[in-house]
């Protein structure tokens, strides 16, 4: 079946029935987005040449001196660089593990709630923090965790303990990050697991009951296997973000007294690049992070494709 108007305009091959109508709109639609992507996403990739230069804004890309790998050598010799890389891995791995295990547990428990209005109310409350910015949540945390006047420390003192300087004590700061990130995101993370739970065939449970399986055995043999693809998918995809320990959160909660355990790659790049205007050094660290991050994402996507049959598009 061919549109009559098209037949007169074009010479036809039998297989090209679909190309009867003009294809140029498809290209035209892509142009505005492509231009913006080229300018604000691909052009900055060229900016990586700065990592191999002693870049001076007054001289520009073409007249700044080439220094080869000097910037990278300098960075490797920074006294705190390995600590920062370690902090990044340590914080983000803890976040990934806690941020997956806890929502799975909550999704399983929510699934046991039979009264619908209770279930929905709980969901409404636990999704909420996800939508607030780290500025707002940071403000709330700074207020309630304050050692001298925050309500959390008032409670701790009421039980006879000494106040804890949650945001100023380098020993506990990473855990404050993990717990507060979990607080913000666990609810929202349950959505995907709940969706997986509802897609499990209810006949499986009925059959299990007939066979005399207890509730725990049902969870172990039906629910968890039913969730496995989603669990594998989320786990592999989170691998790609392991170098991003959460700039928005860390930047709004940290201070110089917790740099030792709380400084991460992104915050170091910010201080070096924007505050100290060492463009070349900051770009070199950024390049390191982008390349490793890209490799990790590529690995995680291919794992996700292999084990969970996941495709981006």
């Amino acid at each position: 079946m061919k549109p009559a108007s098209g037949a007169s305009r074009m010479t036809l091959r039998p297989s090209s029935a679909r190309s009867m109508y003009a294809q140029w709109p498809l290209y035209a639609m892509i142009v505005p987005g492509a231009i913006l992507l080229i300018i604000y996403h691909y052009l900055p990739m060229l900016g990586f040449v700065m990592a191999f230069q002693n870049f001076k804004p007054t001289l520009g890309f073409f007249d700044s001196k080439w220094v080869g790998l000097d910037n990278f050598v300098y960075i490797m010799n920074l006294p705190n660089i390995y600590q920062v890389i370690w902090n990044t891995f340590y914080i983000s791995i803890m976040k990934v593990v806690a941020g997956q295990v806890f929502p799975i547990l909550v999704a399983l428990l929510l699934n046991e709630i039979r009264i619908n209005i209770v279930k929905r109310s709980i969901q409404t409350l636990i999704y909420l923090p996800h939508f607030l910015s780290w500025i707002i949540l940071g403000g709330i945390l700074i207020e309630i965790l304050s050692p001298s006047r925050g309500i959390v420390n008032q409670i701790i003192q009421a039980f006879g303990y000494n106040p804890v300087f949650f945001l100023g004590n380098a020993d506990i700061f990473p855990y404050v990050l993990v717990v507060s990130d979990l607080w913000k995101e666990f609810g929202f993370s349950t959505i995907v697991y709940l969706a997986a739970l509802t897609s499990i065939n209810p006949h499986l449970y009925e059959a299990a009951v007939v066979d005399g399986a207890s509730r725990m055995r049902q969870i172990w043999h039906i629910t968890l296997p039913g969730m496995t693809p989603v669990i594998v998918l989320v786990a592999t995809l989170s691998l790609g973000n392991i170098l991003s320990a959460g700039f928005d959160q860390v930047f709004n909660l940290y201070n110089s007294s917790v740099y030792e355990t709380g400084d991460i790659i992104d915050t170091l790049v910010y201080r070096m690049g924007i505050e100290q205007v060492k463009y070349s050094l900051a770009t070199a660290i950024g390049l390191f992070k982008s390349v490793i991050g890209f490799l990790l994402i590529a690995i995680s996507y291919s794992l996700a494709y292999r084990f969970a049959n996941y495709r981006i598009f």
Binding site: Y40, L43, A282
Partner: peptide, 28 residues
Amino acid sequence: VFPLRTYFAWFVVFTMLFNGGLIPTYMV
């Protein structure tokens, strides 16, 4: 229907996987 679709799709998705970093973006 759209022969270049896959190339364009990767062109778009690649920006999600790899980025120029803070300073070069700021410079642009």
